[in-house]
Amino acid sequence: MSITYKMYTMCMVQDKDKVLLINRPDKKGFPGYIAPGGKVDFPESFVNGAIREVQEETGLIVKDIIYKGLEEFCDPHTNLRYMVFNYLATSFEGSLLENPPEGELLWVNKEEALKLPMQSWFARRFPLFFQEGTFELSYVWDEKTRETLDKTERYYSLAPVQQH
């Protein structure tokens, strides 16, 4: 049995109380507001893929970037494992592109972002970028019936620092 692995990144760019989102048009797939991201090129690392995707889609070069977690979808009928490695960037340099390739760029107040039209999976993941620690979300998904067959959701706090 052959399994197809697709590996992507998503990087939430935060500037104080605002986040940078892309308003993706229907023709691009995943319409609505979403954070920058895309396919990881072989053999680049996941974090370098996230940095590159942010620069290609927004023009910004992210600096302080931290790993937030993994969300994956597995379809047992097509043998597809679709993995998204998620990051949060809290500093950057450069300026926004005038004609971004993936859709209109918009700085949005973090507290207002979930009121915007977006994919349900992105709305579910959105608050996790800002929580302490990391997450691991794994869904067994039947694309034909559009049903979740199984799920694992784990949230990991940062380990306490040992005092000497």
Rank of each mutant, 00 (worst) to 15 (best):
Leu116Ile: 02
Gln14Arg: 08
Asp150Gln: 11
Leu80Asp: 01
Leu106Trp: 14
Asp41Val: 12
Leu128Phe: 00
Glu132Met: 12
Lys39His: 08
Ile51Gly: 00
Glu111Arg: 06
Thr152Cys: 13
Phe130Trp: 01
Glu72Thr: 11
Trp107Tyr: 12
Gly29Val: 00
Thr134Arg: 11
Asn79Glu: 08
Phe85Leu: 13
Gln55Leu: 04
Tyr8Asp: 11
Met1Cys: 05
His164Ala: 09
Gln162His: 09
Glu71Pro: 03
Met1Tyr: 08
Gly29Leu: 02
Met118Pro: 02
Cys74Thr: 15
Asp17Pro: 11
Glu53Val: 09
Phe92Gly: 00
Ser91Pro: 14
Asp150Glu: 11
Pro117Cys: 06
Asp17Lys: 15
Leu149Ile: 04
Gln14Glu: 15
Lys68Arg: 14
Pro36Arg: 02
Ser2Asn: 12
Tyr156Lys: 11
Pro100Ile: 04
Lys28Gln: 06
Phe42Lys: 06
Ala89Tyr: 14
Phe130Gly: 09
Leu20Ala: 07
Pro31His: 10
Lys28Val: 07
Thr58Ala: 08
Pro100Arg: 10
Leu128Gly: 01
Gly94Asp: 13
Arg81Cys: 05
Glu57Asp: 06
Leu21Ile: 09
Asn79Thr: 06
Glu104Arg: 07
Glu111Met: 09
Asn99Phe: 12
Ala89Lys: 05
Ala113Leu: 10
Arg81Ser: 11
Asn48Val: 06
Phe129Gly: 14
Pro43Ala: 00
Gln119Gly: 06
Lys6Pro: 00
Arg24Glu: 01
Phe85Arg: 07
Lys16His: 03
Pro76Arg: 00
Gln119Ser: 14
Glu153Leu: 03
Ile66Arg: 12
Thr58Asn: 11
Gly69Glu: 04
Lys16Asp: 13
Pro25Asn: 01
